[in-house]
Design a protein around this nucleic acid. Structure first.
Length: 604
RNA sequence: GCCGAUAUAGCUCAAUUUGGCAGAGCAAUUGACUUGUAAUCAAUAGGUUGUCAGUUCGAUUCUGACUAUCGGCUCCA
C-alpha cells in the first residue's frame, strides 16, 4: 500500500507496525528488526528471533502489550540524518540492529541522501514515515494480529529466513469485522470446498501423488466444454491443432535451454540403461519445444506466416511441496497453449488480434476484473534470463509500444519475465485476494535461434521468425479454480455439468419427464430426472444446492399442456413456456454460450 | 524446500482440559409417504481418531518423527 492511496490508513498501519515491534521487543529483548511496512489489509513486521520459536500464543501476548502502548499515547518523534552521518548515528542509536545497518548501506548505494528515524516511547526505528501524532490515535479495536510466516530477508531465498508477523488493520472496528466477514464468505466459495461439494476434482496424495488431480465426471464436463470452446475460437482465428507426446529425450531440453536452467522445476528423468550411454527421458514441463520441432519439420515461406500451432497440452512440473495449492498450483496441468511463428513486421497486428481474442474469451466468461503486467527481466539474478541484452531490450520495448498503442493500462513486473523473453501476464485475484497469473502472451526472439527455425523471405533468403507464446485460458486447473470461485460454483448452462434437472411433482408425471429428458439428451443436453423419494421441497433444495442452472417443474398442468415451468438458478421469476419453445430457447442459449448472472469477482 | 497452524464417519463439527468402551447433524442404505417451489417420518449401517514409533496396565488424548492440508516466503500457468 502507498501513502497517497489513503494517508490516514497508511499512517495507522505503519504506526501499528512500530507498536508491534515495541511489544515484541518487550517480551524478547534480543530480537532483531527487519522491515515493517503497511500492506493491502494491514501491516507486517519481520523479526529475527534467533533460536526462539514463536507461535500463535505469543500473538496474544503481543496484542495485549500493543494495547497498553496505544493507551500510553506515545508521541512519534522524527529525527533527520544525512547519508554522511546516518551510519554514525545508527551505530549509536541502534548498535545491534544489523539488518537496519545493512539496509542503510543498501539505501546509500541506491543514492538515498536523507534518512529519518522515528521514536515513540522507548522504541526507535529507521523509517521514512509517515506516522500518526501519537499512539493514542491508533484504533485499539481496529487491528488484529493475524498470522506468523517465514519470510526471507530482502526476499531472497539465499538470505536468512526471518519470522514475519502479519496484522490486519483498519480505521474502525466495523471495517475490521466486515473484512473478517468477507474473508469467511470467501472461504465458503473457496474452489477446493466447492470442488468437493460439486464433485469437480479429487486428490489422492498417497496413491497418486500430491498436486496430481483426478478429474471427476462433473469437472471433466467443464474441462471438455472449455476445450471445445477454445478449439472453436482458435479455429476462427486461424490456428492449426497439433498433438505431442508427454515424454521427450533430454536432448530436446538442451536445445531449448530448459536444461539446466529449468531443471529444478522438472520431474527427474526416467533413465533407460543402454550399452554405451544411458538415455534420459523427461516429462515435458512445457509444450513449446515440441511445437518448435513441428514448425521446423517443414520449410516455410514468408507467405505462410503467421503460423499458429495450438494444443491443449498436458505438462508436468515438479513444483516444490509448499507451493502447491488446490487447483491453482498443481504438478500436472493441461494448458491452453499455442505458438505463433511470424515475421517481425507482423508482430503488432498479430498481437492485437491475440488481445482481441482474449477479450472475446473474457466477455464470454464475463471476466472483467484483471490487470495487465508487463513482465520483464530483473536486475538481480540476471543469469536466469537467457539471450543477449539487445534482444531483451527490443522485445520489452516492442511489448510496451503495442500495449500503449492499444491503450491498455499495465504495470511493470521486474524479474517476472520468462527465461526466453518478456511477456504480458494477465493477473486475476482469487476470492481470498491472492493474485495469480491466469493468461499470458510472451514474445520470444531466442527459441527460433536455438532451434534453427527459419522461413524463406521475399528475397529467397532464410530469415528467423519471431515466436509468440500465448495461453488465454491458462491451464484447465487454474482457470477452473477461478471460474469456480467467481461463479460460486454456479456455471452457466453451456458448461454446467448438469444443464437441466427435471423435477416431477408426482409419479404420474414420470412418463412425460422421461420423454422430455430423452428428447433433450438426443440434442446433446446433459439432463437428469429427479425420481428420488424426497418431498417436492427437498428436491428443489437438493437441485439448488447442486447449483444446477435450469430446473424444470413438471406437474399435471405441464403434462396436459405439453409445457414446462422453468426455474433458473439464482433467478426468482419462473417462466412458463411450451416444451418446444423451451428446447429451442435452451439450444440457442447453449450455442451462444449465454451467461445470465454476473460473477462475483474477488471479494477481498 | 522454509515459517506458522491444522488432521476425529463420505461432509460439517463435538468429546480429549484430568489417559479408561468415540458422539451429533447432513449425506448414504432400507421402509412408509407421492407431495406445486429451499430440508416428510422412521429404522439401519458407517471409525485401527492422518501414518509410524515411544511413555503407560491402558493412548484418539501425553512425547517424538513422518505425511498431507491451509496461510505466508520463495517459485510459477
Amino acid at each position: 500500500m502507498e501513502h497517497k492511496d489513503n494517508p490516514k490508513l497508511y499512517e495507522i498501519r505503519h504506526s501499528l507496525a512500530h507498536v508491534l515491534a515495541q511489544a515484541v521487543q518487550k517480551k524478547y529483548p534480543d530480537v532483531k528488526l527487519g522491515f515493517g511496512p503497511p500492506v493491502e489489509t494491514g501491516f507486517y513486521y519481520d523479526f529475527d528471533f534467533g533460536d526462539v520459536q514463536i507461535n500463535e500464543k505469543d500473538l496474544k501476548d503481543f496484542t495485549k502489550q500493543m494495547k497498553k502502548i496505544i493507551n500510553q499515547k506515545q508521541e512519534f518523534v522524527r529525527s533527520e540524518y544525512t547519508a554522511d552521518n546516518v551510519e554514525e548515528a545508527i551505530a549509536d542509536i541502534l548498535p545491534n540492529e544489523t539488518y537496519k545497518h545493512e539496509n542503510i548501506r543498501n539505501l546509500k548505494e541506491r543514492g538515498v541522501k536523507d534518512f529519518t528515524f522515528y521514536q515513540n516511547g522507548p522504541f526507535i526505528d529507521l523509517c521514512e514515515g509517515l506516522h500518526v501524532a501519537h499512539t493514542g490515535e491508533l484504533p485499539i479495536k481496529g487491528f488484529k494480529l493475524d498470522s506468523i510466516a517465514g519470510a526471507y530477508w530482502l526476499g531472497s531465498e539465499k538470505n536468512k529466513q526471518l519470522t514475519r508477523i502479519y496484522g490486519l488493520a483498519f480505521e474502525t472496528n466495523e471495517e475490521l469485522r466486515s473484512y473478517l466477514e468477507r474473508r469467511q464468505m470467501a472461504e465458503k466459495f473457496d474452489h477446493k470446498k466447492l470442488g468437493k461439494e460439486l464433485g469437480i476434482f479429487h486428490v489422492e496424495p498417497d496413491l497418486v501423488g500430491k498436486g496430481l488431480i483426478l478429474w471427476l465426471p462433473n469437472g471433466t464436463v467443464i474441462r471438455d466444454e472449455i476445450e471445445k470452446y477454445a478449439k472453436e475460437i482458435e479455429f476462427r482465428y486461424g490456428y492449426k491443432r497439433v498433438h505431442t507426446p508427454h515424454l521427450t529425450k533430454a536432448e530436446l531440453y538442451h536445445t531449448s535451454q530448459h536444461l539446466p536452467a529449468y531443471e529444478e522445476s522438472m520431474y527427474p528423468p526416467m533413465v533407460l540403461p543402454d550399452e554405451d550411454s544411458d538415455t534420459k527421458y523427461y516429462l515435458k514441463p512445457m509444450n513449446c519445444p515440441h511445437h518448435h520441432l513441428i514448425y521446423g519439420s517443414q520449410q516455410h515461406s514468408y507467405r505462410d506466416l503467421p503460423m499458429r500451432l495450438a494444443e491443449y497440452g498436458t505438462c508436468y512440473r515438479f513444483e516444490r511441496s509448499g507451493e502447491l495449492s488446490g487447483l491453482i498450483r498443481v504438478r500436472c496441468m493441461t494448458m491452453n497453449d499455442a505458438h505463433i511463428y511470424l515475421r517481425l513486421d507482423q508482430f503488432e497486428e498479430e498481437f492485437k488480434r491475440t488481445i482481441q481474442m482474449y477479450q472475446e474469451l473474457y466477455d464470454t466468461f464475463k471476466l472483467s476484473e484483471y490487470s495487465f503486467r508487463l513482465s520483464v527481466r530483473g536486475k538481480e539474478n540476471s543469469e536466469k534470463f537467457k539471450g543477449d541484452a539487445a534482444m531483451w531490450d527490443k522485445a520489452e520495448k516492442l511489448l510496451a509500444k503495442v500495449m500503449d498503442e492499444l491503450g491498455l493500462d499495465y504495470f511493470v513486473g521486474e524479474g517476472e519475465g520468462a527465461f526466453y523473453g518478456p511477456k504480458i501476464d494477465i493477473q486475476f485475484k482469487n476470492l481470498m485476494g491472492r493474485e495469480e497469473t491466469v493468461s499470458t502472451i510472451q514474445v520470444d526472439f531466442l527459441s527460433a535461434q536455438n532451434f534453427g527455425l527459419t522461413f524463406i523471405n521475399e528475397e529467397g533468403k532464410e530469415e528467423v521468425p519471431v515466436i509468440i507464446h500465448r495461453a488465454p485460458l491458462s491451464t484447465h486447473e487454474r482457470f477452473i479454480s477461478f471460474l469456480l470461485e467467481y461463479y460460486g460454483g454456479a456455471f452457466p448452462t453451456w458448461c454446467s455439468p448438469i444443464q437441466v434437472s427435471i423435477i416431477p411433482v408426482a409419479e404420474d408425471c414420470y412418463a412425460y419427464a422421461d420423454a422430455l429428458a430423452a428428447e433433450l439428451t438426443s440434442d446433446f443436453m446433459r439432463v437428469k430426472v429427479d425420481k428420488s423419494s424426497n418431498s417436492f421441497n427437498k428436491k428443489i433444495r437438493n437441485n439448488t444446492v447442486q447449483k444446477i442452472p435450469n430446473m424444470l417443474i413438471i406437474g399435471a398442468k405441464e403434462v396436459e399442456e405439453e409445457s414446462v415451468t422453468l426455474r433458473r438458478y439464482g433467478i426468482k421469476e419462473q417462466e412458463y413456456l411450451s416444451r418446444a419453445d423451451f428446447i429451442a430457447l435452451l439450444k440457442q442459449e447453449i450455442a451462444d454460450r449465454v451467461m445470465h448472472r454476473e460473477p462475483m469477482g474477488s471479494i477481498i
